[in-house]
Design a binder for these strands. Structure first.
Lengths: 240, 240
DNA sequence: CGGATCTTTGAGCGGGGTCAAATTAGGTGG
DNA sequence: CCACCTAATTTGACCCCGCTCAAAGATCCG
């Protein structure tokens, strides 16, 4: 179940592309001058890396989307986030010998592998790159905390609304439509991420559709009234 | 409401102390050779920094404990963590112009201020220090994710048990008793952190006491059966 | 000692979970 | 391309854990 190797050396794709669409992202061009960046293809359902596997690299998502899962020894499991183009993976495992979580592809992906000790060395020589990585980690912390707040203070329907708005905003930042998109993850994954059950997510989506805010047909979502949705999701306290 | 300045230049306390009790911590001695580390006293209830305030420094807790709070524009608020001796504060705001959360002292604290741009420069000259900071940030991410898992998969009573065990483990790492300690935060703060209501936390503590696992008298806690408690907290799935 | 805050405990309720079944989407081989 | 099968999604009915509302009891501090 190893990811499939695509091509050694420079990618066939315009490398700067990564940087164009992703503000504050890591510049893959600059990095390539200092470390050997390889490119992998990961098929839907496959692990990019998993808990316990030797930590040897960070990864940059070039295409496709993935989920990160935290898991306990006793089998408990939770989706902690969804990653897409431009997102950096593996930073949470820096300082460990083995990765501390699972990363699973939600669809076929193309991923850049950034071998870790070399990246660290490159950072020491390139203050700019260093700053980029540090900021990426800080953004990661803020993103997680922001969702802790959302999950802890909003009702089920509000969480689902906030989730759709978040996906939309990220899509837009990548130059795609932020109002109409395909969810790449199932109801179970959304539910786990939002600390709900999949039936509840399904019901919330149906409700938001009945309210006229969105249109849902399975994984196809259209935000009909983004501003209404935003008001609904941010309504103070949990609304019932 | 500004924190109170204590002393300029080298601290009167043995600086290496920080490093002795905190594995993988930041070496304040080493840092002092490159940046001006000042020491502040923050009184119980005061802010170390707050949302929107200009980001100018990281902070290292030398004594006392604090809570970090995430807050939304509409007033929603959640405690995202509790910090004690050896913990690094402010890393979540790296890359921003202003701090992105609130940090409030739960008791009188002594805090080292590490001015930020200077720390970044020092890191570029000291690979060792750089690695320390990066690992501290990675640990931060793992810690948050680990609690996301706990909050998302355990019942109210299990969360409270897990919380007590976490506090105990951190106390022990600081060379204090891990079986008997004083909680420095109120029921409301614990509840917010665990995504519960304060009444529920109170009831859970009473229940754990009735089961014979702990003794509680207000903020004084004794873990009578840590191993039983650990089994209880880690019981697969939510137990009812 | 008095007043504000924090903590505990009780009683009742409701949002979201659980269990179950119908419906639909998606992938596979003929 | 379609029949088939499996997995994902939706919807319904019911129930329980944790929330709400309320009040009493501790604790802290001036």
């Amino acid at each position: 179940m190893n990811p499939q190797f695509v091509s050694p050396g420079p990618s066939a794709l315009p490398a700067r592309e990564i940087f164009r669409n992703v503000p504050h992202g890591v510049d893959i061009d600059q990095l390539r001058r200092h470390v050997l960046v390889t490119q992998w293809r990961v098929r839907a359902g496959q692990y990019l890396y998993r808990n316990g596997q030797a930590f040897r690299a960070l990864y940059l998502v070039h295409a496709g989307s993935l989920k990160t899962c935290e898991l306990a020894d006793d089998g408990r499991e939770r989706v902690t986030g969804f990653r897409m183009r431009g997102d950096l993976l593996g930073v949470e495992s820096i300082g460990l010998d083995a990765y501390g979580c699972d990363v699973i592809a939600l669809e076929d992906c193309v991923i850049f592998e950034l071998p870790y000790p070399p990246v660290l060395v490159a950072c020491q020589q390139l203050p700019e790159l260093q700053a980029r990585f540090t900021e990426a980690m800080a953004r990661e912390i803020r993103h997680d905390r922001s969702w802790m707040l959302t999950v802890g203070t909003l009702s089920a329907e509000q969480r689902v609304a906030a989730f759709l708005l978040d996906i939309g905003a990220r899509m837009m930042r990548l130059g795609l439509s932020g109002h109409q998109f395909i969810l790449r993850m199932g109801r179970m994954d959304i539910a786990s991420f939002l600390d709900l059950k999949h039936e509840t997510v399904s019901r919330a989506l149906s409700r938001l559709e009945a309210l006229g805010y969105i249109t849902v047909r399975c994984r196809e979502v259209k935000l009909r009234e983004p501003s209404e949705l935003r008001v609904y999701a941010s309504a103070s306290r949990k609304v019932h």
